[in-house]
Amino acid sequence: MNRLRLWLLAVGGAGLAALLVAACLDLPAFGGRWHPYGDRAVQASLDRHIANTIASVNFDQRAYDTLGEISILFAAVLGCVVLLREARDEHRAPPEPAEVARPVRRYALLVLPVALVTGLYVIAHGQLSPGGGFQGGVVAATALHLLYLGADYGALERVRPLGVYEASDSLAVCAYLVLGLAGVLAGTAFLANTLLPYGTFNTLSSGGTVPLLNAAVGMEVASAVVVLLAHFLDQAVEIEEEHGS
């Protein structure tokens, strides 16, 4: 049976490879000059005084698509929370304190605030320099887990109240929706960037609702990643099977 399966995989793979390579040869040359969508997106972003065109595409021109992205993200976190909860035949053993070498502990506790501030900086300057809510959220969440790497899981649990992060996760998604509905209430379209003034170019308050949507996504991604890692850490470190089950 295994030989047949491998043989089938080989034939299918070869066919797919041939078709894909043929398609690649017909694609326009790499590095070509013809980018109609790109030029229009850059023009629309400059009209709205947003320095980072990618943030403008993400949170202004295609904000509805980003709404879909963060709902997928929220559903994935919801699935993980449901799947990784403590089952009946499991008990929660307190995590043993880990002995960590002094320089490593000092490094982790020193870099933690720096990484947290960098994460918030990447979120805040989302619509100016490279960065945004998505990347900044992940950096801030990973920074928090330096406490687990530097000290041990008990220390991290004391500092990170899980309920707050689960609440802020859903709160951030609601904030994104409310910002969208505010557009409808103000008489324009859902998630339309016509509410706030566009401000002066290349400043923190430029771009109308883009910084607000960016901050909402940053908060949502940060708390989503913290909740994810919390449940995975619980499974890997604390929750154990009942012996004899």
């Binding site: 990447v122 490279p130 990347q135 992940v138 950096v139 990973t142 990643v225 995975f232």
Partner: peptide, 19 residues
Amino acid sequence: APDAGLSQLAVGSALTPLL
């Protein structure tokens, strides 16, 4: 594509391996 590079760095170098 610095934005995508930042995103890949944040996710690929610390989050996915940890998971």
